[in-house]
Design a binder for these strands. Structure first.
Length: 232
DNA sequence: CCCTGATTCGC
DNA sequence: GCGAATCAGG
């Protein structure tokens, strides 16, 4: 699998949105987590908040011997003064409290002006029994919550999904092969009788499971499990 | 153990 | 340039 324009683009956006290297690797398919990290660094995407603590450094004998030279080049990284200044600029009211560092939107990483992906920061919040409302990061004023309905009734499934196998229909006897993309109106599952002992029907087992060949001889590009790349 | 990202280095 | 192996922290 090679780094095509599309795949690099996907990597860039997901990386800057805060997806983990593993998630990116899964999504792209055909590459390892390490490959993603390696590529990201080669692209210069570097330096986003990682679980690694930048604070201190121990000197184990092994490391001292091995990394004596490289350490110099590694040094310029986190800049506590700048970070502190940024934190001071933030108004007391909008401190990033709720979400953890995993969430893409308002993590302290936002200081790096990335050209792409200014979106994907919509927030959904519950307004109580009335349901949910959507709020973008640019919305300064709190949206007016809709008047709560008298009672809550189950939403009717859309016509597209009415006959199809939904998430709730899944069990261990029917094929769980996804058709379409999650979030799209007609996303559903295969629903055929599953091959006993497998999560898929016989046909989809044929797609999902393939004989393991020696690395060099692996021919077919791995089947894309969700019906192929999303086209927009 | 699991996970994370960072780095190295043979290819 | 690529990515497995390895390192290091959570």
């Amino acid at each position: 699998m090679s780094w095509t324009e599309e795949r690099i683009e996907r990597l860039k956006s997901m990386w800057s949105e805060g997806s983990t290297a593993s998630q990116i690797a899964d999504e792209l398919g055909g590459v390892s987590r390490n490959a993603v990290i390696g590529k990201a660094h080669r692209l210069g995407l570097e330096a986003r908040p990682s679980p690694v603590k930048p604070g201190e450094e121990k000197e184990t004998p092994k490391k001292a011997a091995k990394a004596a030279a490289p350490k110099a080049a590694k040094a310029p990284k986190a800049e506590p003064p700048a970070a502190a200044a940024n934190a001071a600029d933030v108004a007391p009211g909008d401190a990033p409290d709720g979400p953890g560092p995993d969430l893409p939107s308002q993590a302290p990483q936002a200081q790096r002006p990335q050209a792409a992906t200014p979106d994907a920061t919509l927030q959904y919040r519950s307004v109580g029994p009335g349901g949910f409302i959507r709020q973008g990061p640019g919305d300064t004023q709190a949206p007016i919550p809709p008047a709560p309905p008298r009672r809550l009734v189950p939403a009717k499934p859309s016509a597209e999904v009415a006959d199809k196998t939904s998430l709730l229909d899944l069990n261990d006897r029917i094929c769980r092969w996804p058709i379409g993309h999650p979030g799209e109106p007609d996303f559903h599952f295969c629903g055929q009788s599953a091959n006993p002992g497998f999560p898929y029907c016989v046909q989809h087992c044929g797609v999902a499971y393939q004989a393991q060949l020696p690395r060099r001889d692996r021919r077919p590009p791995p089947p894309l499990p969700f019906g192929g790349p999303r086209v927009r």
